[in-house]
């Protein structure tokens, strides 16, 4: 079960004041095709840090979704992203954000467990759960669809998007094993332009 942020605040479960989520005033308006323009989505990562999705604007990033109890596609997704990082190792690492679409199960402990299993750390590799807002909007703009299965788990696809600093989707990959060379090249090209 999910609660609006103000309910969590009432219950004393959120320590940071809402003002902490406000993005610093941007010098330029967000481009219309920036996925940071989705309705406000507040996330909490494996280190218990709370932040707004839109606050990530400012540098290129890889963004996808997953769920913690996933046995096959999601572990493969994380390992593929590590291989992609390795493939661009001569450059600075590109930050990764994966948001769970199973927030009722994936609490911070679960996020930390998945992060530990894959040896990934913040701030470079963030696993996060939605705290407030509609993660379905994020899924929609990324081309990700998911549906709970009767037998447990989800039917879903995997899409990881390369975002430029403004949040425009530059390239996508299904992150299903060997790094897609075109996707790796898109990351390197984007870095080179900065």
């Amino acid at each position: 079960m999910r609660f609006p942020l103000h309910v969590l605040l009432l219950m004393g479960l959120v320590l940071a004041p809402p003002l902490a989520f406000a993005s610093p005033p941007a010098a330029t308006p967000l481009p219309k095709d920036s996925i940071y323009g989705i309705p406000t989505l507040i996330l909490r990562d494996q280190q218990n840090d709370v932040f707004s999705f839109a606050s990530l604007r400012g540098e290129p990033r890889l963004v996808g979704m997953f769920y913690g109890s996933c046995k096959m596609a999601c572990p493969l997704e994380i390992e593929t992203l590590k291989r992609i990082e390795h493939a661009i190792a001569q450059k600075r690492p590109i930050p990764v954000l994966l948001v769970t679409f199973d927030p009722t199960v994936d609490d911070v402990a679960m996020l930390r467990q998945v992060a530990d299993e894959h040896h990934v750390q913040t701030p470079q590799f963030r696993l996060a759960r939605p705290e407030e807002g509609d993660e379905g909007m994020l899924a929609g703009v990324l081309g990700i669809a998911y549906r709970p299965l009767l037998s447990g788990g989800f039917s879903h696809n995997v899409v990881v998007a390369l975002l430029d600093a403004e949040g425009r989707v530059i390239a996508t990959t299904d992150a299903s094993g060997a790094p897609d060379p075109a996707f790796v090249r898109a990351i390197v090209d984007l870095e080179a332009k900065r």
Binding site: A73, F154, N157, V159, D174, S176, G177
Partner: peptide, 13 residues
Amino acid sequence: RVAGGGALLALCG
């Protein structure tokens, strides 16, 4: 977007 050989792997279910 999940076409090709990755399609099966891209699905948990």
